[in-house]
């Protein structure tokens, strides 16, 4: 069996959110809510983790949402329907803890708006009452609301500019719901690190057990390198194999922010020098000292 990782469908569903449907039976048949894959757009690319946002057993496909944040995501987005990824490994990480909790609250931002869908579905199938809150900067950036809406009991939308739903963020809507007397037995958040931190702060006073899907920098994604290590309750965990879901109330957020920014300068260099990659193959090859001197 040859795995090709062919892109079956690709579309920019709202500005800068790209939906990829990729054929890979091996991963589709094993995917669980909360897991991720590692993707390389091309041979020279980085290995980047992306959340499994849906999968179809019959078609043997998986769905990923990609936001352009740097060179690696840009190169991924440059690929077209019919193209193949260079590398696709997974499903990685533990599945999200899904069982009958009672009343479950889910929050998603950025790629997490796509990524919480399988968790919402799985939580609902376990018989939970599921509330989802999704956020974006403005109404035209909200996506996936029908899919999520179809599997949850309550769906709330927040926007930074107030153009849709509550003006604010997931944690603001959460505070409002709690103020109105809603109680939750479990919370789970997926999105950028800042959002995860803010949401974890919001559930702390009520002591709602809170899982966060940590998106640390990863390399192999199988526990081999320790790049994604994060302090949780004073203990070092590897986000790739101990997570990605970890206890939002125990994560050392300051450390995580610092670790996430280790390559900030290199990211800028990479972005600046990227224009040279669109040269002709001949020019590019001449500039590639393959296996040679530094």
């Amino acid at each position: 069996m040859v795995r090709e990782y062919r892109i079956i469908e690709k579309s920019e569903i709202v500005p800068n959110v790209h939906k990829f449907v990729i054929r890979d039976h091996s991963i589709a048949r094993k995917a669980q809510a909360g897991q991720f894959v590692l993707v390389m757009a091309n041979e020279k690319g980085e290995r980047i983790p992306l959340t499994l946002s849906d999968w179809d057993l019959k078609e043997g496909t998986i769905t990923l949402y990609v936001l352009e944040l740097g060179v690696s995501t840009m190169e991924l987005i440059d690929l077209c329907e019919g193209d193949s990824l260079f590398s696709l490994a997974g499903p990685l990480g533990h599945e999200a803890e899904v069982k009958k909790f009672g009343r479950v609250l889910l929050g998603g931002g950025c790629f997490g708006v796509g990524g919480i869908y399988p968790i919402a579905k799985a939580m609902k199938e376990e018989g939970n009452h599921v509330t989802a809150i999704i956020e974006a900067r403005s109404n035209y950036l909200i996506y996936n609301q029908e899919e999520i809406g179809s599997v949850v009991d309550e769906l709330y939308i927040t926007t930074s500019d107030g153009s849709m739903g509550l003006k604010g963020h997931v944690q603001d809507q959460l505070a409002e719901l709690i103020k109105n007397g809603k109680r939750y037995d479990r919370a789970y958040f997926m999105g950028c690190t800042f959002m995860l931190m803010k949401c974890s702060e919001a559930t702390r006073p009520q002591k709602i057990p809170t899982g966060v899907a940590l998106n640390a920098i990863m390399l192999d994604g199988t526990g081999m390198c320790g790049c994604c290590r994060v302090s949780v309750g004073g203990e070092t965990k590897f986000a790739c194999v101990d997570g990605p879901e970890l206890d939002g109330h125990a994560v050392d957020w300051d450390e995580l922010f610092i670790r996430k920014h280790i390559y900030r300068e290199e990211e800028a260099v990479s972005y600046q020098s990227h224009a040279c990659r669109s040269m002709t193959g001949y020019e590019r090859d001449r500039k590639t000292p393959e296996g040679g001197g530094a």
Partner: peptide, 22 residues
Amino acid sequence: ANEYLTRVNLMKAYLFPIYATP
């Protein structure tokens, strides 16, 4: 050491930014 060597050897970070891994 695993991370450092994997970045350099497998991902060819010594050829950054031609190879994207820093």
